[in-house]
Amino acid sequence: MLFHKLLLCLMLVPLMASAITVQDDRGEPVHLSRPAERVASVSTFGADLLLALGMKPAAITRFGPFDQPDYLAGSLQGVPVIGSRSQVNMELLSEVAPDLVLAIRRYTEKDATRFAEIAPYAALNLVTLNDSIRAVSIAGELVGRTADAEQINRSFQRQLETYRKQAPGGLSAALLVTGGEAPFIYYDHFLTAELLNWLNVDNLGGELSEPEQGLPLGYRMRLEDLLKQNPDVIFLFESNKERAFTQNPIWPYLKAVRRGQVYEVGQHWKEAAGPIARSLVLQEMAHRLYPELFTMPELPESLRSKPYR
Score class of each variant (00 low, 15 high):
residue 142 L to S: 02
residue 13 V to T: 13
residue 58 A to H: 07
residue 219 Y to P: 00
residue 221 M to S: 09
residue 209 S to T: 15
residue 206 G to T: 10
residue 198 W to V: 00
residue 238 E to A: 10
residue 123 A to V: 04
residue 184 F to Q: 07
residue 207 E to C: 01
residue 164 R to H: 14
residue 214 G to C: 13
residue 251 W to M: 06
residue 192 T to F: 06
residue 265 V to T: 09
residue 233 V to W: 08
residue 3 F to W: 08
residue 228 K to E: 15
residue 223 L to H: 04
residue 22 V to A: 10
residue 33 S to I: 05
residue 78 G to W: 12
residue 47 A to I: 03
residue 72 L to A: 02
residue 87 Q to M: 06
residue 84 S to D: 09
residue 73 A to C: 06
residue 30 V to N: 00
residue 17 A to G: 03
residue 115 F to G: 02
residue 261 Q to E: 14
residue 152 I to A: 01
residue 38 R to Y: 01
residue 197 N to A: 10
residue 283 Q to D: 08
residue 302 S to L: 10
residue 259 R to T: 09
residue 39 V to Q: 07
residue 100 L to V: 12
residue 212 E to T: 13
residue 65 P to I: 15
residue 303 L to K: 05
residue 270 K to P: 00
residue 103 A to E: 00
residue 202 D to T: 15
residue 289 L to W: 05
residue 271 E to C: 03
residue 6 L to P: 03
residue 306 K to F: 11
residue 29 P to D: 07
residue 36 A to D: 10
residue 184 F to D: 04
residue 183 P to W: 05
residue 55 M to Y: 05
residue 161 E to N: 13
residue 286 A to D: 05
residue 112 A to D: 07
residue 266 G to A: 08
residue 64 G to Y: 13
residue 134 R to H: 12
residue 102 L to A: 15
residue 53 L to G: 01
residue 201 V to T: 15
residue 10 L to I: 15
residue 138 I to Y: 05
residue 277 A to T: 06
residue 142 L to F: 06
residue 224 E to N: 07
residue 120 P to N: 02
residue 189 H to P: 02
residue 101 V to K: 00
residue 173 A to T: 14
residue 77 Q to D: 10
residue 220 R to C: 01
residue 176 L to W: 07
residue 48 D to M: 11
residue 80 P to F: 03
residue 213 Q to A: 13
residue 30 V to I: 12
residue 167 A to S: 15
residue 54 G to W: 02
residue 20 I to H: 04
residue 274 G to F: 00
residue 294 F to E: 02
residue 295 T to S: 14
residue 237 F to M: 14
residue 90 M to W: 08
residue 210 E to D: 14
residue 220 R to G: 09
residue 144 G to D: 00
residue 254 L to D: 10
residue 197 N to C: 02
residue 238 E to Y: 13
residue 262 V to E: 07
residue 242 E to K: 14
residue 249 P to R: 01
residue 84 S to H: 06
residue 187 Y to W: 11
residue 302 S to R: 15
residue 289 L to M: 06
residue 263 Y to K: 02
residue 262 V to D: 08
residue 207 E to A: 12
residue 301 E to N: 11
residue 207 E to K: 15
